[in-house]
Design a protein around this nucleic acid. Structure first.
Length: 491
RNA sequence: CGGGGAGUAGCGCAGUCCGGUAGCGCACUCGUUUAGGGUGCGAGUGGUCGCGGGUUCAAAUCCCGCCUCCCCGACCA
């Protein structure tokens, strides 16, 4: 998409993002402003993401729980910067009953059914969870507390986009409590690594890891870590965040514990999350002019089998070969599907499954039946080959792995190709305007400079890379800088 | 919240200026033909024209009010 734009050929830019999401059957618009309907095909991707992530969370010692959707308003006022960060986008429940209108034309809110205390619909669950943690934690023996929840949250956004930013979205939020600062920081780092591994190994999406500037930090956090990916249109996408919350929520909710030494101390906290936004990332990282291109490890359908035949007497042998293949693939745990509907032509099916991003297509026709072969086509390179039927499993497994690897390799190459190092601010502005991408530049560490760049270029500091860096001079102010940071326009 | 666009068949749209039997493409149904890259042909089903009020013999069309959605700008995962 991004490359096409520069070549002035057919453009598949972000204007077409929403269209692609809809046409591929991932989601559609709801009549409710800013909300979307995640359709079965899109939801299947989410289910695969959930399965993988959930296992990763369990493997790192976490367990799942569920906390209420409604948060008493008073909980919110406990942590000052948290309130400030979310107050502007909270939906609030004020009444609990409807009644028929006097003229019988419909229903209205019953003014007599006003809530004593209004309920905020969770934009995130720190407050209600820490209210519980207070009751759960007495001693160092109760720590660490490692909990995750899969939930929906609501943030009243002004501008929405399918998957990337919707009023309601699905996510997971981990909330942990620890006895020491070091342990909490390590937890936040561990979970960031989990996210990075998920993005690269499963989504085939190259990411950068780092921490946020104070200005971009999560409301209520001491430190926010993030993974950031580069989309094909040259914009950055925050794909996951992990926060070291210090003792802020412990103080706000008075969560103290007895140490081994018998003293009292506030608990150290983290929280971390990824959302259905990742599905938007998948689309913006792997699509081409034909449609989506899903990484095999997350594709709802990994292999689609399409039969081809002319006459009725050809149908039966083709059909039985296809069914046999389907069975064999399924037995191996491969998510294969066989589109035997004869109301669509093969050509139609080819286009449809390419649009949907199915990694591999197997085509079987009379000629193949005679030769005991089948045709197999990779979605990523559209490369065709003919394979003896007896090699079905090895060929499919091999190609699924190759597609997965190739997508990731392309994502890494794209990110590298579109990451530039800039010393000169006017050139920086040109690059941001004309080709986008990640820009590595020196920054003096002040919020003023950060704001100025944002106002003038719409680019923000996506992250401060980990590790030691070469000092230099700020690209705007010329003041000393301790290292380069990553700039980009972002979703 | 500011600016722009739009609400007419499941979807995409024309018709609105200039009032006079509600149309086109896709989808859908039936028939037929076809099938190795979104088959061709024929017939058919499907509408409180976003909602409410007004003007008129007559309103998708004119007038008044309201609602909703999408796109572009200031906040955020």
């Amino acid at each position: 998409m991004f490359e096409k734009k520069n070549n002035q050929t057919e453009e598949a830019g972000t204007g077409q993002y929403s269209d692609l999401v809809v046409r591929a059957g991932l989601a559609e618009y709801s009549d409710v402003r800013g909300c979307m309907i995640i359709k079965p095909y899109g939801y299947s991707i989410w289910e695969k993401m959930q399965a993988v992530l959930d296992k990763m969370f369990k493997d790192t010692g976490h367990t799942n729980a569920y906390f209420p959707l409604f948060i008493p308003k008073s909980y919110f006022s406990r942590e000052a910067s948290h309130v400030e960060g979310f107050a502007k986008e909270c939906a609030v429940v004020t009444h609990y009953r409807l009644k028929n209108t006097a003229d019988g034309s419909g229903v209205e809110v019953d003014p007599d059914a006003k809530l004593e205390e209004e309920l905020v619909i969770r934009p995130t669950s720190e407050t209600i969870i820490w209210n519980s943690y207070k009751k759960w934690i007495q001693s160092y023996r109760d720590l660490p507390l490692l909990i995750n929840q899969w939930a929906n949250v609501v943030r009243w956004e002004m501008r929405t986009r399918l998957f990337l930013r919707t009023t309601e979205f699905l996510w997971q939020e981990g909330h942990t409590a620890h006895a020491t600062k070091q342990e909490a920081v390590e937890e936040a780092e561990t979970m960031l690594d989990v996210y990075a591994r998920f993005a690269e190994d499963f989504m085939a999406m190259s990411v950068l890891k780092g921490k946020k500037t104070p200005y971009e930090r999560f409301a209520g956090a001491e430190e926010t870590y993030c993974i950031e990916a580069l989309m094909l249109d040259g914009k950055g996408l925050q794909a996951g965040t992990s926060h070291f919350l210090g003792q802020n929520f412990a103080r706000a909710f008075d969560v103290k514990f007895s140490t081994k030494e018998g003293t009292q101390d506030f608990v150290w906290a983290t929280s971390w999350g990824v959302s259905t936004r990742l599905i938007g990332g998948l689309v913006l990282v792997h699509s081409d002019e034909k449609g989506l291109c899903l990484p095999p490890k997350l594709a709802p359908i990994q292999v689609i089998i399409v039969p081809v035949y002319k006459k009725d007497e050809e149908k039966l042998p083709v059909d039985s070969v296809c069914r046999e293949m389907l069975l064999k693939l399924k037995e191996e745990g491969i998510d294969a599907a066989y589109d035997h509907s004869d109301t669509r032509s093969p050509g139609w099916k080819f286009s449809e499954y390419e649009l949907k991003g199915v990694p591999l297509r197997i085509v079987v026709g009379p000629k193949d039946v005679a030769n005991k072969t089948f045709e197999i086509v990779r979605r990523d390179t559209r490369e065709k080959s003919f394979v003896p039927v007896q090699n079905l499993l090895s060929a499919v497994k091999d190609l699924l792995q190759k597609v997965q690897e190739n997508l990731f390799r392309k994502s890494v190459e794209f990110r590298e190709k579109n990451t530039t190092v800039e010393e000169n601010y006017s050139h920086f502005r040109e690059v941001i305007e004309e080709r986008g991408g990640f820009i590595l530049a020196h920054w003096d560490g002040t919020a003023e400079t950060e704001k100025k760049i944002k106002e003038e270029t719409k680019a923000t500091i996506r992250l401060i890379p980990f590790g030691d860096q070469e000092p230099g001079k700020c690209i705007v102010s010329g003041n000393p800088s301790t290292g380069r940071v990553v700039f980009a326009r972002a979703y």
